[in-house]
Design a binder for these strands. Structure first.
Length: 937
RNA sequence: GCCUGAGUGGUGGAAUGGUAGACGCGUCGGACUCAAAAUCCGAUGGUAGCAAUACCAUGUGGGUUCAAGUCCCACCUCAGGCACCA
């Protein structure tokens, strides 16, 4: 008798020897490419989370092979990265040595789990044979004008003298030493990814990504359609352009803002403001990205002394500089419309800049022959009692705030104060906010008239309870009541008053839609129509044009690190930047053992002078190599192409191989990579497609993501929390099949799920039960008659669920099947064989072993069973009988029963009779094979 | 603030608009055993009841429907991602 671990070893050797999972390029079988993100081989070893996603894809791969597909299921290593470099610095060894060790561990662990990877295609991104092609592809980017050098700000720690990634400088503090991170300008290689924004957006239509993945991509690209508007500067020839998505609000622009870094700032700043502006600009350079974008930060800024001319009404509006405007987005300048943009509103309030409302929300329904008038709604708040002043008309009109019509010669504010006094007698009010105006339509019963009013809202605070006697008119029969927030939300039904209350709760800019006011030729139009009309106006007056902007920027492609692909560029004093000759690739990383960072922010490579000094490929004179390396994302942007033709030394992959495999059919990875990694990979592929090197513009068809395996405390597994589960321990104690089965069964594959060793034991019991069932096997090459339906149902469910990531229900289906078998004294050989095949994708070792004992040829060389749809339906079924939607009984129905028979059966049930007794049957609903509902009155 | 998800027993989680809680874990009871482990059998959402059964129950409140965990509207909580993108 072999032990569990021996059985597993036996089959792992069998698969390896027989190359059971080798994918043959060019085979006449249908190709199917299943990819799971290749791991970073860390020193921690394989995580149980890896086991979950690899098992899931492995199960799919195994089933599809049995279904006759030529499955490509590869594995490799994404081994460049900071941890290996840190480790190397500490231990004075070359990172490639550390990586070699880690890969060995990872591979051994994967093999003990029995994943059906085609190991013949294995490679690491750190192999010179691989990164040669990463470098080669960079040269293609360069040669096609897609790579360029630019000066961009980087996070810089003055203490560590090192460039930090955004992650390492979270919170504006250096992760390592805790000192303040500052911004430093640095010349970096960039890839023109923003040129591809539109194509990356459109390309999504040619993929089958999950909707949330597509949304992630769309948000990251961040397309916004708007307009560029040109502003002249008063008394000066200069002009500047702003980007806006709301050109319809141009009449409401009351100032402009330039980013502190904007080129024009120095030119337009007047003498008297020079000093302050300089100081402000300087203060901004000291702030890092985090501080500048901090939430709820109070707006800051400085007036430049100059004025811009609003192109639609020639009004002079002041120009400020402020860091809430980003130099890197749009044109680095904005027109500010405080009435309709929250940020502008905050700035304008702080600097006392006028706020002009140009758009009103509309409430109520318009009607013919409306009378127009202006009115107010006053909301009075009592801070001490936390209550609002209302008047209650009871059944004559419900609860309202104080309202009224503005009279001749009266301002809205005067009107509001008068109305409050007349209706309630309160006089000591302090204005908190004047609220946005609302355009309201309503019908007045007492006057039998339709009105269209422009209502101004006010929020007051009550100061003291001084009250004079109200001056109500005779027909004003209401009560004055103080009402709580809850009462108001429940009882105030009037749309205008509700809207006004909403404004009072969230005072600020009105960013919604409505109709335009104070806007010349736009008056009366809604947002969309007004945008179109404004665009026409701007274009015909040469003052602006439609413009599309994207949040996505070019890809900063330089890293000041040792352990990455060297960028194959050479700088010559005479010839400038020159690409290396392609035939000289790969440019190898030097074999030294010191990678301490330099103290000026250069890559550690800069200190290795033997390596840095070289000759210019163009003029042959002395020159220096680029010392920055590529980011971690580079190698993973095209590895899936390499798997199609992993050992080609003429090309990164041959067109023939890529045409045969077509694309990645199924790509599984973590949710955290669905935005950036996927975008980089798609960009890379689209570029290669455009220069004719890959067969399709999108090389990834379906992208799905898995949930994390958390510790049993529902927290992320980490050494410090002591909740880490090592797959090696589990395999040793319970076997790989049990671990695989449990990880499939633990929960919804796409969702996070905590580890539970108790539940794992349950899966062990299930596997043991399957083994025990062998004792019940009797000869027979047919399914047992009474098992036929459940067998056919199970085949269908297992195969459907394996394809739709319902791995947990695959396992439960098989548990149900095994329980059914267990109820019987005997099962046929064929019954048992079927269970083994269905379970094989998830628990491949033990099923192969039991299958062999039965005398069959290996499952990995067999065919997947085909189910008979006709036999998936039960002859007899229990269904519920409802009366008025509540289940009152269950009856057994036969598939051939007519509606009449079913009806009869239902009406015979005692409990049903009791519930319909003395009542009239209104409706008799029979959903065949599902439910009966008797509706009675 | 915005975008994604998710809220169902003691617990992990099932459920094409059709008997909510499949399957598993745990717990309780029983069998086997000198005993324990393993295994097997039974019970297991809550309240009331001896029971038949009734009522309540899928985050909260409304709605659509013969029928809602599932669809629609509003809200609350949690997790992840993005965040002054004009």
């Amino acid at each position: 008798m072999l032990s569990m671990n021996e059985i597993e070893k036996k089959w792992q050797i069998y698969w390896e020897k027989n190359k059971s999972f080798k994918a043959e390029t060019g085979s006449s079988k249908d190709p199917y490419y299943i990819l799971v993100e290749f791991p970073y081989p860390s020193g921690q070893g394989l995580h149980v989370g890896h086991v979950r996603s690899y098992t899931a894809q492995d199960a799919m791969a195994r089933m599809m092979r049995m279904q006759g597909k030529n499955v490509l299921f590869p594995m490799g290593w994404d081994a460049f990265g900071a941890p290996a470099e840190q480790y190397a610095i500490k231990n004075h060894i070359h990172p490639k040595e550390a990586v070699k060790e880690n890969i060995k561990t990872f591979k051994r662990q994967m093999q003990t789990l029995g994943f059906s990877f085609d190991w013949d295609r294995e490679f690491s991104t750190t192999d010179p044979e691989y990164y040669k092609w990463t470098q080669w592809q960079f040269l293609q980017f360069y040669k096609h004008g897609m790579a360029y050098k630019d000066t961009v700000p980087v996070n810089w720690c003055p203490t560590c003298k090192s460039v930090l990634s955004n992650e390492d400088s979270a919170g504006g503090v250096c992760e390592r030493c805790g000192s303040q991170v500052v911004q430093k300008e640095k010349s970096q290689w960039m890839l023109r990814m923003s040129d591809y924004a539109e194509d990356l957006l459109k390309g999504l239509d040619d993929t089958n990504f999950a909707e949330k993945v597509k949304l992630g991509q769309i948000n990251w690209i961040g397309k916004s359609i708007g307009a560029e508007v040109d502003f002249k500067i008063d008394g000066c020839k200069e002009r500047f352009t702003v980007f806006t998505t709301r050109c319809d609000t141009l009449f409401g622009a009351t100032y402009c803002v330039l980013a502190p870094e904007h080129k024009l700032v120095d030119k337009i700043t007047t003498e008297e403001h020079k000093k302050e502006v300089e100081e402000y600009k300087h203060a901004c350079t000291l702030k890092n990205d985090m501080e500048r974008t901090e939430l709820n930060k109070e707006k800051t800024g400085i007036f430049t002394g100059s004025y811009a001319i609003n192109p639609v009404n020639n009004k002079k509006i002041p120009i400020y500089i402020s860091d809430y405007v980003l130099a890197s987005y749009g044109t680095g300048a904005i027109m500010a419309v405080p009435a309709h943009d929250q940020r502008d509103y905050e700035f304008a309030t702080k600097f006392n800049i006028p706020i002009i409302q140009v758009l009103e929300e509309v409430t109520g329904k318009p009607h013919e022959n409306e009378t127009e008038k202006n009115s107010i709604v006053a909301i009075v708040y009592n801070k001490e009692k936390d209550e609002y002043l209302t008047i209650n008309w009871h059944e004559k009109g419900g609860r309202l705030f104080i309202g009224g019509t503005i009279q001749e010669g009266e301002t809205p504010l005067e009107c509001a104060l008068r109305e409050v006094k007349e209706e309630t007698g309160y006089t000591n009010l302090e204005l908190v906010h004047e609220l946005s105006k609302v355009n309201h339509h309503y019908y007045a019963y007492n006057k039998d008239k339709y009105f269209n009013i422009e209502s101004t809202g006010f929020l007051f605070e009550l100061k003291g309870d001084k009250q004079v006697s109200p001056e109500r008119e005779e027909d004003e029969q209401f009560e004055v009541e103080w009402a709580t927030k809850e009462t108001i939300e429940k009882e105030i039904k009037d749309e205008l008053h509700k809207k006004t209350y909403e404004y009072a709760c969230h005072p600020g800019a009105m960013e919604g839609d409505g109709i335009h006011i104070n806007s010349g030729f736009l008056n009366g139009l809604n947002k969309e129509d007004a945008i179109h009309k404004m665009l026409e106006y701007l274009e015909s007056n040469h003052a602006g044009k439609e413009k599309v902007n994207y949040k996505m920027r070019d890809w900063i492609f330089s890293r000041q690190r040792f352990w990455g692909e060297p960028i194959p560029m050479i700088y010559c004093e005479k010839c400038g930047w020159q690409p290396m000759k392609e035939e000289d690739l790969p440019l190898l990383l030097p074999d030294v053992a010191e990678y301490e960072p330099t103290d000026n922010g250069e890559s550690p490579l800069a200190k290795i002078t033997d390596w840095v000094n070289t000759t210019c490929p163009k003029c042959g004179g002395s020159a220096r190599r680029e010392t920055d390396t590529m980011p971690n994302w580079a190698g993973s942007s095209w590895y899936f192409l390499r798997f199609m033709d992993a050992h080609n030394n003429q090309k990164f992959a041959s067109m023939d191989a890529m045409k045969y495999w077509r694309r990645v059919d199924w790509y599984n990875g973590g949710m955290e990579h669905t935005a950036r990694h996927l975008l980089y990979a798609r960009f890379w592929v689209q570029f290669l497609y455009n220069i004719g090197l890959v067969p399709n513009k999108e090389m990834i068809w379906t992208r799905v993501s898995h949930g994390m395996v958390l510790g049993s405390d529902n927290q992320k597994m980490s050494k410090s929390k002591g909740n880490v589960i090592n797959p090696d321990d589990i395999v040793k104690e319970y076997g790989a099949d049990t671990l695989r089965t449990y990880e499939m069964f633990m929960g919804d594959y796409q969702m996070d799920c905590p580890w539970s060793t108790d539940s794992l034991k349950g899966c062990k019991r299930f596997i043991d039960k399957v083994i025990r069932l062998k004792e019940k096997v009797v000869d027979g090459e047919k399914y047992s008659a009474d098992l036929e339906v459940i067998i056919n149902k199970s085949i269908k469910k297992v195969q459907n669920d394996l394809c739709s990531m319902g791995f947990n229900t695959v396992v439960s289906t098989l548990m149900i099947l095994a329980n059914k078998y267990d109820e019987k004294d005997h099962i046929t050989k064929k019954d048992y064989h079927l269970l083994l095949i269905l379970l094989n994708p998830i628990a491949p070792h033990i099923t192969e072993e039991l299958n062999e004992e039965l005398g069959y040829s290996p499952i990995c060389e067999s065919f997947w069973p085909i189910y008979d749809e006709a036999k998936t339906i039960d002859e007899e079924k229990e269904i519920g009988v409802q009366v008025n939607g509540k289940v009152r009984a269950t009856i057994k129905v036969n598939i051939n029963d007519s509606e009449e028979v079913v009806k009869e059966k239902a009406l015979k049930e005692e409990n049903v009779i009791r519930h319909i007794d003395g009542k009239e049957i209104v409706k008799f609903i029979i959903i065949k094979g599902k439910i009966i509902n008797i509706v009675v009155k």
